[in-house]
Amino acid sequence: MFRAATSPPSLTTLVLLTAFSVLSLNMFLPSLENIAKDFQVDYAMANLSIAGYLAITAVLQIIMGPLSDRFGRRPVMLAGLGIFSFASIGCLLATDIWVFLAFRLLQGALIAGMTLSRAAVRDQHSPQKAASLLGYISMAMAVAPMTGPLFGGILDQLFGWRATFVFFVAAGFLLWWLAWADMGETNETPSATIRAQFKTYPELLRSRRFWGYAFCLTFSLGAFYVYITGAALVGGAVFGLSPAAIGAGVGIITCGFAVGSFLSGRFANRFPLTTMVISGRVVAACGPTLGLLLMAAGVLHPITYFGAITLVGMGNGLTIPSANSGIMSVRPQLSGSAAGLSGAMAVAGGAALTSLTGAVLTPETGALTLMLLVLASVLLSLLAALYVRWVDMRDPLPE
């Protein structure tokens, strides 16, 4: 196990790398207030460790994807994990907020775990098989957001906020060792030079199929961002729920996502990518549509309101693995670049939709407005998916 890997990574390794990439974003959310107190700054300053992290991961995905197409998945993955691990030490030992934030931004290199895991799967498998495996990997993206803040809150309560970064240091180096021992190179056709790779980019950027899948992915995830932004306001101001109940209402969409991802793992290998993507968009659209019909009938209850949103999560679980596989299948030799660019688009789109949601929601109209915004994002993603189907009918990809 101390020898460098020469064979492709196991599914377990890719699941762990993906899950930890998600975990690193939200695990220390319960500690933000204590971090602000410790560094004697306001909460908004401490919150830059979240907003700045999201921004840097968007940029890094655009950089890491092409680098992995040129130099391979393995070296870029190891570099990202190494930077994250040493940056975690910097966060742990930081004595002022600026040093902490600087090292926190460096932690964003861990996004390699999510971006390159997807590319590694596509390197080895056909588009449909890749979609099936990505479905199982996506389940980690549902479990991590639910368990991360709980675990981080326990560590903070028992040992203080720096304990979370002790965990990050240990886990980061363990994952580096796991990738060293189990993640052999999967990119068998790296570009000869950076210049030669750049010459192939217009093929990707001119692809209507790529942009269709990318916009479908962006607005599918956008519905999730819209919901989690507004769910707390609706839960508190409209339904008068306790913080614990609001947390359950926010988390219910990830339960649906886990179910949908599992179904993708079971069935994506049997159906065309666009069939899975469109099916997921239809299921997702049923959620806010049902919620709006119930509201029109005078039924406004937390169980019916938040329960309807479960279908949005399930639809995303059905859509996202196949959409990701489709994105990386347009130009397989640029699968890393495609994964990075689409990931950056999804983060930027989520940030824009989050800002829009925060700007238009009010306690008086929050329940209706939130449901309409979720439905609008889902319908836009459905239009993008139908556009890909239209492109496939006119210009099918070669087998």
Rank of each mutant, 00 (worst) to 15 (best):
F219L: 10
L318D: 02
G287V: 13
L14M: 14
I83V: 15
A237Y: 04
L67A: 12
L383N: 05
A171N: 06
S261E: 06
F257K: 07
L133T: 10
G72V: 01
M64S: 09
A359Q: 09
F2M: 12
A46Q: 08
C91Y: 00
A268H: 00
G307R: 04
I253T: 09
F39V: 08
R195T: 08
F20H: 05
A51L: 11
T200M: 09
R208I: 04
W390M: 12
A36C: 07
F100E: 07
V15F: 15
S220L: 15
G72Q: 07
A179T: 10
G317V: 07
M45G: 05
V360A: 08
T12S: 14
K129W: 03
L300I: 05
V234P: 01
M314A: 07
L134M: 15
I246G: 04
E364M: 12
A338S: 10
L106E: 01
V59M: 14
R389S: 12
V238G: 06
A163K: 03
T274F: 08
G287I: 10
L29M: 12
V99H: 02
G52K: 06
T18E: 05
I137C: 05
A87R: 08
L81D: 12
M328I: 03
E185Y: 03
S88Y: 06
P272D: 13
D395F: 12
G172F: 01
I111E: 06
A232M: 09
A5M: 03
S381L: 13
N316T: 15
C255I: 15
L175D: 01
L318R: 12
A142I: 02
L375T: 01
Q107D: 11
T289Y: 07
W98L: 14
L133Q: 15
V391A: 12
I309L: 07
R122F: 06
N47Y: 07
R104F: 00
R208E: 13
V76W: 09
T229E: 11
T319F: 13
A119Q: 02
M328E: 01
A344K: 07
M114P: 09
M64H: 02
A352K: 00
S337M: 00
L101F: 04
L54F: 09
N47F: 09
S207P: 08
F219W: 10
G222T: 03
P302Q: 02
M114Y: 12
L116D: 00
R195A: 13
S88H: 07
Q124R: 15
I97K: 00
P302F: 04
P145Y: 00
A171M: 14
V59Q: 10
V330Q: 08
